[in-house]
Design a protein around this nucleic acid. Structure first.
Lengths: 238, 238
DNA sequence: ATTGGGCGTAATGTATACAATATAACAGGC
DNA sequence: GCCTGTTATATTGTATACATTACGCCCAAT
């Protein structure tokens, strides 16, 4: 065990394990969403356990949670790997977002207050800033956070939690099928949406969200690479 | 250990552990949904481990899955207990079902074929039969299965899986807030719905589903029992 | 008599040891 | 030369032992 790991372990030994687990969960989740862990990457339990300074028991718990959110795929006797979303799954996710996020807009428009609108504007600004500075993966995460916060403002915690998983999966989909340098979300879209919501125009916001999501989906290039009988000559041969 | 449990243990000793885990998961899930395990009931790991003949490790895995579906509540250092849905949660669940299940009806009407319609009719008939024979908890489960199967026919696996968790939670809500002998689902409702779907009338089916869900929700008596400073005299006193 | 503190028990949280199994390397045969 | 069967290694699956913590009981003091 390295010094850094030993320190991490010590500092957490008296802290509440719950928070430590939550932190590790977020660390892995963020790494996946930001494509530092690429789809298909294997997540060996021993390696993760050593990195985070806890035993495999805790790692397995976290991997199972990630698996239920469809961020990692658990293959029996083969272990965990970062999920590689299929085109079908991508369609399902965006169809679900269409139905739910659009359906929630009227509620959000009715309930949102000034403070919450300001919070959303701040998030949208930070997103634009990340885009300008070329931090695409950070921008993807901020965009997802924006959509999640929006769903939370509907007042329905159950649907908000589901939207959160949909947005996480969307980030993964974008990381796989999105064009480099083409984020999907236009930078001003979110600001426009806030305007409609502040005006209390739920129907307008709903229609705009629909176009917004359609635009993201349309920006994807849905080509599934074949994994059966790959041309080894082409891949490895000179 | 009862004979049935011993048999279950023996028959699974050489079977794949995965299926065994799935079976135990369903056994617990069913027991909760059918109110054989009442809300608030504690689920001790040792007890479950002994009953099903596996160690606590596997039990914890199952409990965590049930917790993520909100069927059980995991309190740190206190263990697992069957979730007692609050009135707010109940509202969220039924609002979510309104949005999603109704929104899926047009898709179902478009995609459903004769064989699937026959399957649904069979489920509806078995549900009526259970109702007639007074097996209320069984009828609740069959009703939930009907709604889940319907969502699956939409072709969106992601939304179907979410509807499944919503229906499970609804069963729990009905078990807590429903009147005895008043199931919520009128016995002929599901048959009527199949008729609209067979006719390809998605909008009609959507409107009917909306009324159907509203009727179920309206049949509940949303009185949350106070848990702070209960009148012990009234509860325990003669 | 009731409340507060201390202690014993019981249950959960965590880590580790062991068993089962899949992958990969390698040797032998067609 | 390629394919197949075997063995070795590495990784996951499972159980159990230990540590930690909460609950219930008892006793004493006000």
């Amino acid at each position: 065990m390295s010094d850094a790991q030993a320190v991490a372990k010590r500092s957490a030994s008296k802290a509440e394990g719950d928070e430590r687990h939550e932190a590790i969960y977020r660390a892995v989740s963020d790494a996946i969403v930001e494509q530092r862990l690429k789809p298909g990457a294997r997540l060996r339990e021993d390696a993760l356990a050593e990195v985070f300074g806890i035993s495999r028991t805790g790692i397995r718990k976290i991997l199972q949670r990630l698996a239920l959110e469809q961020l990692v795929t658990l293959t029996p006797r083969r272990g965990a790997s970062v999920t590689r979303p299929t085109a079908d799954e991508a369609k399902d996710v965006f169809d679900a977002r269409q139905l739910i996020e659009c359906g929630l807009m009227p509620d959000v428009a009715r309930r949102m207050n000034e403070k919450e609108a300001a919070e959303l504007r701040d998030m949208a600004q930070r997103e634009r800033q990340a885009l300008r500075s070329g931090q695409q993966s950070v921008a993807i995460r901020l965009s997802a956070d924006f959509h999640v916060r929006l769903a939370q403002l509907s007042g329905n915690a159950t649907l908000a939690a589901f939207v959160e998983t949909l947005c996480s999966r969307s980030s993964l989909i974008l990381a796989v099928y999105g064009h480099r340098g083409h984020l999907g979300c236009e930078s001003h879209d979110h600001d426009d949406l806030i305007g409609y919501l502040e005006a209390g125009n739920g129907e307008r916001a709903k229609a705009f969200m629909s176009r917004h999501l359609k635009a993201i989906e349309a920006s994807l290039s849905m080509v599934e690479e074949e994994d059966s009988a790959p041309d080894l000559q082409q891949i490895f041969g000179g």
